[in-house]
Design a protein around this nucleic acid. Structure first.
Lengths: 203, 203
DNA sequence: ATTTCGTTTCAATGCGGAGTGAAAGATAAG
DNA sequence: CTTATCTTTCACTCCGCATTGAAACGAAAT
């Protein structure tokens, strides 16, 4: 039966200097703000920022304390982060608690986020677009205006396909932390562009 | 209720077939939904969808009517769309009203959106990250943990720089509607990756 | 078995950003 | 000038989504 120090609730990180605390605060707020501009849960991003910046695994209580959020909230968003593969549960000997750590490699983090968002959002859109054209093609032949609309939807769908190809071609680069390779491809792209310039027209 | 109201203001689009109406509805809802997943105002996206799908310029009242939104709302979001360069004001002879049209080229639309979001969101993040490190470097030399944190912030900032380069290298391709060129670059990217594979190590 | 320590769920609540609409502002026509 | 027509603003309201917290659940220790 391990008896604990009677220092129950005030769990300020003792090892952080004031300016470290402040910078961490800035960082967390920034990350949350940015995320919410991209349709990602603010708190989820704040937890992620905290874990990214943390020098060691944190448990739920520490996260609650630092971000001033409820247990339920912390738990839900931690689950989401684990589900997104951005955070891992770990354990420490002598404790039954779950501890959490975030991936440290920014390239991997980005890859993961892109992959996850792609998985969750591209396919449904493609299906929904298909559903639109299906609605239009039901029954009678298309009127001119309907045909025009179908064309526009198709343009969109085609574009999304190319974009998909583009993304899946480049994800492996990010995954393998190969900044140099990315730069090579950028240079090639610029060359292709100069070479081909003027050849394209919209006739 | 009477079978037909003689109200001259109820201006249902007479030329749209029921299925066209329905598909349009689906399309608009889809677009709005998707946008809100990406941190973009739902109504703004719905207006954009409506204008993208429309076969002719629409005025504010038509937009209000179709989307069931207030004049103020329509106006604000139209302004935003014009500000984003996604929609243009046009005029018709014999009318003082403003009419609105959306760009039809999906490549251009995408370019524009990416450019705008970059403009609005990348720079502020870079500055805020810089501010974090400034906070840390104020006064005393860095402790070990502080130095570690600075490193992580720097990693992030560096990554954003590369990403910026990547984006600005590829935007011109989208702008010029050059799907073919994009495909060439993708192929090259894949070749580079195969070639270099195994050369990178993490030592 | 019971107790203890942790996690998860979910109905109820709260908050911030989106939307409203009346009033003010613009601009063209008379 | 005044009127008529259309646009813009902004203080207030409202709604959807995030958050809460208490109760249920689970699993290790005893």
């Amino acid at each position: 039966m391990p008896d604990r120090a009677p220092d129950p609730l005030v769990a300020e990180e003792p090892s952080l200097t004031p300016r470290h605390q402040e910078a961490l605060q800035q960082f967390i707020l920034l990350w949350g703000e940015m995320a919410s501009h991209w349709g990602i849960n603010r708190t989820m991003a704040q937890i992620h920022a905290l874990l990214y910046a943390a020098e060691r695994p944190l448990d739920t209580d520490e996260i609650m304390e630092r971000l001033q959020i409820s247990r339920g909230n912390a738990n839900m968003n931690l689950r989401a982060l684990v589900d997104w593969d951005l955070v891992r549960k770990t354990h420490q000997i002598g404790s039954r608690k779950d501890y959490y750590t975030a991936e440290q490699d920014v390239w991997k983090i980005t890859t993961t986020i892109i992959e996850q968002r792609r998985k969750r959002e591209i396919k449904p859109v493609q299906q929904a677009l298909a559903a639109c054209t299906t609605t239009l093609r039901t029954g009678e032949p298309l009127t001119n205006e309907e045909a025009q609309f179908v064309d526009r939807i198709d343009n969109l769908a085609d574009f999304i396909d190319v974009f998909e190809g583009f993304t899946s071609a480049f994800l492996p680069f990010l995954q393998s932390r190969s900044g140099e390779q990315v730069k090579r491809v950028i240079q090639f792209a610029q060359k292709v562009r100069r070479t081909k310039n003027g050849e394209h027209d919209d006739g």
